[in-house]
Design a protein around this nucleic acid. Sequence first.
DNA 1: CTCTCTTGTCTAGCAGTGCTAGACTCGTCA
DNA 2: TGACGAGTCTAGCACTGCTAGACAAGAGAG
Lengths: 192, 192
Amino acid sequence: MSVQERKQRERAERERLIVATAREIAEQDGWDAVTTRRLADRIEYSQPVLYGHFRGKREIIGAVALQGATEMAAAVRAATAAADGPRARVHALARAYLDFADRNPAVYDAIFQLEGGLAYAREDTPEPLKDAFAALLESLGEVAGDGVGAGLFTEVFWASLHGLVTLTRAGRLPPEHTGARVELLVDRLAVL
Amino acid sequence: MSVQERKQRERAERERLIVATAREIAEQDGWDAVTTRRLADRIEYSQPVLYGHFRGKREIIGAVALQGATEMAAAVRAATAAADGPRARVHALARAYLDFADRNPAVYDAIFQLEGGLAYAREDTPEPLKDAFAALLESLGEVAGDGVGAGLFTEVFWASLHGLVTLTRAGRLPPEHTGARVELLVDRLAVL
DNA sequence: CTCTCTTGTCTAGCAGTGCTAGACTCGTCA
DNA sequence: TGACGAGTCTAGCACTGCTAGACAAGAGAG
């Protein structure tokens, strides 16, 4: 029994190592640099070991996405909890969101852009993803305004933030006026 | 003289063929399916011929992006020209934008997501890209509201639309309520 | 304590990728 | 008609994700 338990522990530990290493490489040199060979090299195992834990590269991206979603939810909640009043909360949320994207570009991509084999916006959506959306909804729901559903409003606000993030990082928008853009977004979208 | 001219004509014709074929494959099976081998096969030339026209795959994506930007600007202008009043124009613009993205997903990606080796938001930005932004600005500038620059407002509105497009297409947002989301966006952002 | 058998890991390889060096062919011009 | 140069191709490099099959090490049975 104990032998099996030890093996399970080691296996789980190695899985964490794979995910952490993939994230590390991606954050350092981009997801294109996360090749199965390089990843295997770094964890000091051969390639096939990766496939004993994940079906393929996609699932590894998915695992990073789940981990990231949890962190993002926590970051957003921490920021909004420290703010007084709806307006300050929405501001704090927006800044926390952009900040997270800025500090963890690869993780952000894993969550919102890349194909990680995860189900989104459905019943069988993994809990971390649901919770990340919930974290946004908690603060945004209270400024949706009359006759507008909290869910719908959250989706729109979120999409706007996401647009700013992606266009800026893809070089389509100059990063200079991000602050002013967020300001405008909050002022116009949120009903206070 | 005439011989050289003919060669130049043939060369330009082939370049058009490359771009059109790349776009075709991308629109049919996604950009990942646009491999230099497949592309070369389709145009009935060998791979190296592609490199006589473009530095690499990136530049081909860039060429498709430029072509697409021109079309998009035209689509937006056609839609807004047919609308009466600022509010109707903004609505028409938003719908035209989403419609273009929906009908030409691969081209949309080439313009706004993929690395095509193009300069954005700078002096040396290719004319088609500048003009696409200008097409947005023409209609959006008039609803920016007091004290808000037309450029800034256009950027924010555009980013919001872009967020909706990308999140929806990446499966992060269910496509059902797109109409309501756009409605909300226009109502809140535009000052009428 | 030895033997078997499962479990886990590795080596080596497949089919595909973007891109390029060097051979070769063909049309153009003297 | 012959030489030259432009244009094109074949073949190959180093890389990708992924996997079959060989192999070794460790657990459990006798």
